[in-house]
């Protein structure tokens, strides 16, 4: 995803004179092409995220379209007030990109985990909060964010994430897609971890369990019409996010369900428990430990269906 981001940024900078890239001293060599294409519009803002965020707001208020890039905790919770005041309150159309989100940098420890970002940032009025599942979705959302009147926060993975969306997917901000059809239960998620859900669904199919998998693209705005259609079809949902269980996608869906009229839905939330992780391994190890890999998800889904009241 990182490479797709750098490639798309370079292409956009070549097309548009207002696209500006601010890095928090990361992305070694990653933006070499961008710097060739738009040398005056690349800024290494150093390890000083508060200034970088306010500076981006100032640029946006002057008509530029700045994109901020650094590791997720540093571009979110580190400078939350600058996001709240400079970006969200001013509705300065900044695009804030958090790389290595969720457990991408699991082995780097809690300082580099981002398991609260969506929960915290979706409370800010007027800020889109998106979490693309693959590179195609990232590119579509980035393009849309750079034309939107309001700011966007985008959490992305690192590299090697598989493509999950088909050619005919309707990608963008607040646009959901059904990645896999099914009939027994709906997994509704965001981010690259949806790849694990697809593998779980594939593994369960021969056992007669039919799982549908939906990709929501983000937590704000939610795709209301899509969710309403899903609510008509599926009484049992599992939400899935590589994010803490508090306040993220699962919570956003519960809020959406609580405030609407329609058929009752049983929603169970899957994510990282409400705890800091310090017995560390890589992302695959950590997902496995938390039951968020394909195998763990398959077990959870099977149990959810077996324990369902008849």
């Amino acid at each position: 995803m990182r490479d797709s981001f750098a490639r798309e940024m370079t292409a956009l900078a070549a097309q548009r004179s207002d696209v500006t890239l601010l890095s928090g001293d990361i992305g070694n060599r990653m933006f070499d092409r961008f710097k060739e294409v738009a040398p005056a519009r690349f800024f290494n803002c150093g390890i000083a995220e508060a200034n970088m965020m306010s500076l981006a707001a100032g640029m946006a208020l002057s008509g530029l379209r700045p994109v901020i890039y650094t590791i997720t905790p540093f571009t979110t919770t580190r400078c939350l007030e600058q996001i709240r005041v400079g970006v969200a309150y001013h509705q300065a159309p900044v695009v804030i990109v958090g790389t290595g989100s969720g457990l991408s940098y699991a082995e780097l420890g809690p300082t580099h985990h981002s398991l609260e970002d969506m929960a915290i940032l979706r409370t800010l009025p007027g800020l889109n909060v998106v979490a693309p599942a693959d590179s195609a979705e990232l590119v579509a959302q980035l393009r849309e964010a750079l034309n939107a009147p309001n700011p966007t926060y985008m959490r992305i993975g690192k590299k090697g994430e598989p493509a999950l969306h088909g050619q005919d997917a309707r990608l963008g901000i607040g646009k959901a897609n059904l990645l896999r059809e099914g009939s027994d239960l709906l997994v509704v998620g965001v981010g690259p971890i949806l790849g694990e859900a697809l593998q779980a669904a594939e593994a369960l199919a021969p056992t007669g369990i039919s799982v549908a998998v939906a990709s929501l693209g983000g937590v704000k705005p939610l795709d209301g019409p899509f969710l309403a259609a899903m609510a008509e079809r599926f009484p049992h949902w599992l939400s899935l996010e590589e994010h803490g269980i508090t306040g993220g996608l699962g919570s956003a869906l519960l809020e959406w369900l609580a405030d609407r009229d329609g058929p009752a839905i049983r929603l169970r939330r899957l994510g990282v428990p409400d705890a800091f992780l310090h017995e560390l391994g890589n992302q695959a190890y950590t997902r496995r430990q938390l039951g968020l890999d394909a195998e763990g998800l398959a077990q959870t889904i099977r149990r959810a269906i077996e324990e369902r009241p008849q």
């Binding site: 005056a40 800024f43 508060a50 965020m53 306010s54 100032g58």
Partner: peptide, 25 residues
């Protein structure tokens, strides 16, 4: 009024962003 301030430490970085924008533009 160019910016909402009141929480200290925001205005100078925002002005820096505006100055860099003017340079680019």
């Amino acid at each position: 009024i160019e910016a909402a301030t009141g929480s200290l430490g925001h205005g100078l970085p925002m002005a820096l962003g505006m100055a860099l924008a003017a340079r680019i533009q």
